[in-house]
Design a protein around this nucleic acid. Structure first.
Lengths: 240, 240
DNA sequence: ACAAAAGTGTTCGCTATACACCCATGA
DNA sequence: TCATGGGTGTATAGCGAACACTTTTGT
């Protein structure tokens, strides 16, 4: 099974820690033996060339699984970056050739975004960097552009698909949900209006459970019910 | 300059003739000398492999220009089709190899959709088929799937971008605009409510001109003003 | 008692929807 | 004069936005 040197996938993996939105980055100098202390960080998105007989979605899932051990994760293609100038930085091309041991001229990359629950402990700790999605440093290739486009896509899809719940723990408070919306949309929301609108969403169920040991009125926990969501959504689509 | 045998672009080119939404197809048996009369139609979307040093957007524009002579046309990437099984039909693979004279294993294709004004006379008449977008016959490769996804994308973007005017003549009637919306959205709209809502769109200007020689009350012509649209849209985006 | 976040209602303007008739023209 | 599509207004329900205070807990 041979890697195709012309087509790759790159994953923008988002996570949410109740305070800010993070993106998973890899330091490609981390494994180097030389200059361990002094080597500058060289951050990039996780990605891979695609195998000759591999579906591109499978390739994106493979990258995600190899890195985090997770499967059946929300993962969606959002844009192709196909400029021949993508590899113009010398160090990027050099790194790619040394990694793959292939001669590489140009790579068209298909960008995916993925949403994972950051509070779960993953087997990739230490090997990866969760960086705040705002104020990213310069990344390899055109990866800054890819993250920006991914964030924009996330923002546009927030109102069409139940993606917020992919980023939150199974039980969450309204405050957490609102904070997540505020970060992704990039604006503050009115707490009363927010509660009012989600109280109409039948796919959000309140649990009996409340927060414990917090120095304020404890918040109610809620959960997302996928079955109800799908049922409602189906009705909505068919009545049009 | 060499074609890259792994990456292609395919274009779903939509047109609107005031009655139905059409898609541009090519009969790849049309040029064959043998069986001129009896050869079955073998329809496909226009597309091309990408040159080694060519940007993918440039490649899509090239396909469009070569076919229609048109430049600066609305053209947008919407999905990548990357299953290794895309070329599973024997006749598809054979045709591709004979066309390109290259050995081809798998091709990842980036699908674009494009909107053109069908009432303009194009240099491709006779060479292409404008087929109603509904009830398409079986197309080559996975091109049926590509058209369906393109149509879905068009539907979703209709409310976010001024794409309807790319399909209409420069001056158009409200009825034409409504008909286009109805076809793309797949449902009937109330004429009074439709007129009411677009009368609020400041980027649609009524012209002095009316229809002539029609056997009913002549309709007012309108035009789309891109400058006003951009101004409004900019204000909308910044005030969020 | 205080700090800190949870939770709760009302008003107003806008928008979506439903619905029926007269008008201008060519044939 | 008839057939054809153009063009018009009103009433209602629901939604989004603005806005301030009380409640519950831990310290």
């Amino acid at each position: 099974m041979k890697l195709n040197p012309h087509v790759s996938v790159d994953c923008v993996i988002f996570g949410f820690d109740s305070l800010s939105l993070k993106v998973l980055l890899i330091d490609r100098n981390l494994g180097l033996k030389t200059n361990k202390q002094t080597a500058p960080k060289s951050l990039k998105l996780p990605g891979s060339l695609v195998y000759d007989d591999e579906d591109i979605n499978t390739a994106a899932n493979r990258v995600l699984k190899d890195l985090t051990g997770l499967e059946n994760i929300y993962l969606q293609q959002f844009h192709v970056f196909g400029s021949p100038k993508r590899l113009n930085k010398k160090e990027d091309l050099a790194w790619l050739q040394s990694q793959t041991k292939m001669k590489i001229n140009r790579v068209v990359t298909i960008a995916y975004y993925s949403l994972i629950k950051l509070h779960l402990s993953l087997p990739c700790e230490g090997k990866v960097i969760w960086h705040d999605v705002m104020n990213l440093p310069e990344l390899a290739f055109d990866h800054n552009e890819i993250v920006q486009k991914g964030l924009l896509t996330l923002r546009l899809e927030l109102n069409n698909k139940p993606i917020a719940f992919e980023l939150l723990p199974k039980k969450f408070t309204i405050r957490q949900l609102q904070k997540l919306y505020e970060i992704i949309l990039g604006k503050n929301l009115d707490n009363r209006n927010f509660r009012k609108s989600i109280s109409k969403w039948e796919h959000i169920l309140s649990l009996k459970e409340k927060e414990m040991k917090v120095a304020h009125k404890p918040a109610q926990y809620f959960k997302f019910d996928k079955r109800i969501y799908n049922k409602m959504n189906k009705e909505y689509l068919t009545e049009q």
